[in-house]
Design a protein around this nucleic acid. Structure first.
Lengths: 412, 412
DNA sequence: ATATTTATTTTAGCACCTAAAGTAAATAAA
DNA sequence: TTTATTTACTTTAGGTGCTAAAATAAATAT
C-alpha cells in the first residue's frame, strides 16, 4: 500500500557501503557492517542487490591466505567500469580533462592550451562539448555510463544554479554552463570552485582527519581559499564565500587585479610580488604581468639568498597574509589553516613576517588552538577532488539507473 | 527482537510536532501533518502518545466557531507546565534571569546588579546556584520539571565543553561552568554566546525567513557578531568564531580593549567613540571608559546635528565598519547583514561613510546580492533566544522523561 | 431527515532493520 | 582422518514505523 517510501535508510546505507568501498578498496561484508554501524544481515541484503545490479563484484580469494582460522572473508569491491565521471579544470589559458572510474581511480588525463580569455560563452560551451565528446569516444569503451561531469573553475561559481558568475580565466560573466552540458551529455554536471576541489582532497587525507573545520589558502598567480565546515565546503549565499584574496590588508593600498585597492592578493600573489620587484631587480625576461614559474623562482631565490629588496617584498606579503589570516581566525576559528598552491615556493621568505604580524594582531584567546601549516605543492590535485565530488554526487543516480536496468523488470 | 531502534524517524517526527506547536501555537492534527510532511495517521499516533504523556492537551472547542462545513478541527497545544527552562544572561555588572515555560512563553524575569569582574569562578557558580534556586523555589510551582538552563554570556564560550573561555564581564578564564550547574540541578545546561541567542530570535522572525545565511552585528559597549549558516549559529572549532569586533581595520591603528591595535571595535564601539570624543567635546559627566547611554546619546546628537568633530568620529567608525563588513562579505557571502545592538543609535551618523568604504573595497561580484540593513534595538532579546534554544535542546530529554513516567510502566 | 464536507481514527500492508539461528568454509587438535 | 573450533555469511522471525484507504465522527447545507 505504502509505495512512496519516506524512509531513506536503505538508500543511505547503500550509499554508505559504496563510499566505504571507494575509500577503502575491497572490504568484507562483516567489516562493511562494523564500519557503517549496520548489521551484517543488512550488508548481505544490500550487497546482494548491488551484485545483481553489477555495481560491485566479489574478489576471487587470493592464493596466499594470511588469514587465521575460520571461514575466510569474501572481499567485495566496486566494479570500476560501472560508471565513470569526467572532471574539467578550467584555468587561465589551459584546460585539463581527467576521466575517473567508478572506483575513484584516474583513468586518463589530458591538457590543452586554450586562450580562455578570448572565448565567448558559446565558444566555451562548444569547446567543452568537443573535448568531452572526444575523450568519451576514446576512453569510455567498456564503461556502462557517464555518471557525471565536474567543472572545476577558478573564480566565483554558483554550484546551486550551475552558473559561472565570474572567473579570471574568462572575459564573460554569469554563464549558466551546467544546464547546457547536462542536456548535451544526459548526466548531472557539477560546478565547483577549484579551491574547494583541492581542499576536499586534502581533508580526506589521514593527516587532517582531526580537522573538520579546515581553511585552505592557495597562493599562486591569484589567491584562493576554501573553507570546510565539518568537512563540507562552505559556499555562502551565492558561492562567493571564502574570497580571502580580496579581503583587505590596507584600506587604500596596492591595486588588485579585481580593480580595487588593498586586497591581500595585491601583496602576496605572484603578480603582486613580481610587480613590486620588477623595477628594482634583474629577473629573467618574460611577461611581467603574468610571471612564469621560472621568473617567480628567481625572485624567491633572491629573497632567500639575502637580497634586501626582495626580502622586504616578501616580508610585506607576509604581513598582508598575517593580517588576512588574523581575520580568518577571528571570523572562522578553524582547527587548521593550510597554506598551499604554487606560491608556497616563497613561503619561507614570508613566514617570519606573517607570524609576527599575526601574533601582534590577535590575542591568545582568539588564536585559540588553530594550527597554521604549509603544504608542499607537489602536483595539482584539483581534478582528483573533482572526480571524487562528482562520484559522490552521482552515486544515487547510478544506483537508480542500475536498479531500473536489472532489478525491477516488472516496469516493462 | 530488534529492540535498539536504529530508525530515528519516530523521534524526529515527534520533535517536529512539538516544535511546530511551539512556533505556531494550537494546531490541528491534519495541519501538523501537512506542515511536517507526514500523514495524519502518524500525527494521530504521535499525538496520542504525547497526550498520554501529558506534554500536550486538546484545546476545548471555542464558543464562536467561524469554521465552515465539515467536522471541526480539534486543536492541539503544548501543555505550558510540562517543563520549564531558565536562561541567565551574564553581562558586565548585571545578570538577568528569565523563566520560560514548555510552550516557549516567558513566565518571569528579574535583573540583579552584580560586580561581575570581582567574582572568582567559584563565586560565580555559587551566585548562579543561589539565584537559580531562588527563582525555581518561587516560580516553579506547578511545573513538572526543570528541563534545562541556558547561560548566555558575552565573550568566547565553548558550547561543546560548556566552558567560558573568556568574557569581558569576568576576570577569570576557562571556567567549566556547565558541568557543575548540570550536576547541581540535574538538568542539561547550555552555554551560548549572547549574540547567537539574539541572532536566533531574529532569524526566526518572518522578515528574515528567506535569509538562511544571516550575519548579525551587535554594536554596543563592545562589538559582537553572530553568523547563522543555514539558520544555525556557526561556532568554529572552539567557539571563538565570528569575533567581528577583533577583525582588523588598520594593522597598527587604535588600541582595542583586547590589548591589540586596529580592531574594528577600537573605532566603532561605544568606548571607542567616546574616547575619540572626550578630549574635544563637552559631554555629560561620567565614567569615560564606560560611557553611559546618556553620554552616548549626547555624542550621537552632536554628530547628527552637524558638529564636525563628532561627525568625523562617526565617519571614521563607519569606515572601520565598512572595511570589516567588506571582509565579512568576501569571506561569508551572507544573504543579509543585520546591524543592531544599542550602538545602532549612532548608525545614521556612520552609514554614509560605511557604505562608500564598502563600495570602494569590494567589486560588485563579491558584493553579490547581500543586503545590509540595520534593526532598531527595542529590547534585549538575548534571553528570549536562550529560552528557545534551551527548549529545543531539551525536547528529546523531556520526551524520554515523560515516556519513562507514563508509557512503559512495564519497566517497574 | 439526508447529503455533503472535512477531520480523525482504524485497518491492512509494505519496507526497513536487527538478533538469533542456521550454514559454510577454513584451521587446529585428537 | 575425523572432529572441534572459529569466523564469515545467510536465513528466519519478529519488531518499528510509515502510508493509503476505509471507516467513523461531527459539523453544515439542502
Amino acid at each position: 500500500m505504502a509505495l512512496p517510501s519516506t524512509d531513506t535508510s536503505r538508500l543511505d546505507n547503500t550509499l554508505a557501503v559504496i563510499r566505504t568501498l571507494r575509500d577503502q578498496g575491497p572490504v568484507a561484508r562483516i567489516d562493511l557492517g562494523t564500519l557503517n554501524g549496520i548489521s551484517s544481515a543488512t550488508v548481505t541484503s544490500i550487497s546482494a542487490e548491488l551484485l545483481q545490479q553489477g555495481l560491485i563484484s566479489e574478489r576471487p580469494p587470493e592464493a596466499p591466505r594470511p588469514t587465521g582460522r575460520g571461514r575466510p572473508k569474501t572481499l567485495i569491491e566496486l566494479d570500476p567500469n560501472a560508471a565513470c565521471v569526467v572532471c574539467i579544470k578550467l584555468s587561465i589559458n589551459e584546460i585539463q580533462l581527467v576521466v575517473g572510474d567508478f572506483s575513484g581511480q584516474v583513468r586518463h588525463s589530458e591538457h590543452h592550451a586554450v586562450t580562455t580569455l578570448a572565448l565567448s560563452a558559446d565558444d566555451l560551451e562548444a569547446l567543452l562539448e568537443e573535448k568531452i565528446s572526444a575523450v568519451c569516444a576514446l576512453q569510455l569503451k567498456g564503461f556502462q555510463r557517464l555518471a557525471g561531469i565536474c567543472l572545476a573553475v577558478q573564480g566565483v561559481v554558483s554550484s546551486q544554479s550551475g552558473t559561472i558568475i565570474w572567473s579570471p580565466a574568462l572575459s564573460f560573466r554569469n554563464a549558466p554552463i551546467s544546464a547546457r552540458l547536462a542536456e548535451r551529455f544526459h548526466c548531472s554536471v557539477l560546478l565547483e570552485n577549484d579551491a574547494n576541489c583541492i581542499a576536499s582532497v586534502l581533508a580526506a587525507q589521514p593527516d587532517y582527519a582531526d580537522c573538520p573545520n579546515l581553511v585552505v589558502i592557495m597562493l599562486g598567480y591569484g589567491i584562493g581559499m576554501s573553507v570546510l565546515i565539518n568537512g563540507v565546503p562552505f559556499l555562502g549565499a551565492n558561492g562567493s564565500a571564502a574570497e580571502f584574496g580580496h579581503s583587505k590588508y590596507q584600506p587604500d593600498g596596492a591595486l588588485c587585479a579585481c580593480g580595487r585597492r588593498g586586497c591581500i592578493e595585491a601583496y602576496a600573489s605572484d603578480y603582486a610580488l613580481y610587480r613590486a620587484a620588477a623595477d628594482h631587480l634583474a629577473l629573467p625576461p618574460g611577461d611581467s604581468a603574468h610571471p612564469s614559474e621560472q621568473q617567480m623562482q628567481a625572485l624567491t631565490q633572491l629573497a632567500l639568498q639575502g637580497d634586501s629588496v626582495a626580502q622586504e617584498i616578501y616580508a610585506e606579503a607576509g604581513r598582508a597574509l598575517g593580517v588576512g589570516i588574523a581575520n580568518v581566525l577571528a571570523l572562522f576559528n578553524p582547527d587548521l589553516v593550510l597554506i598551499t598552491g604554487s606560491g608556497v615556493r616563497g613561503f619561507d621568505a614570508m613566514q617570519a613576517a606573517m607570524h609576527s604580524t599575526l601574533n601582534e594582531a590577535l590575542v591568545a584567546e582568539l588564536m585559540g588552538t588553530t594550527r597554521i601549516e604549509s603544504c608542499a605543492w607537489d602536483r595539482d590535485m584539483t581534478c582528483m577532488g573533482g572526480i571524487a565530488m562528482a562520484l559522490n554526487a552521482t552515486d544515487g543516480e547510478t544506483l537508480l539507473d542500475s536498479q531500473a536496468k536489472s532489478g525491477s523488470a516488472t516496469c516493462l
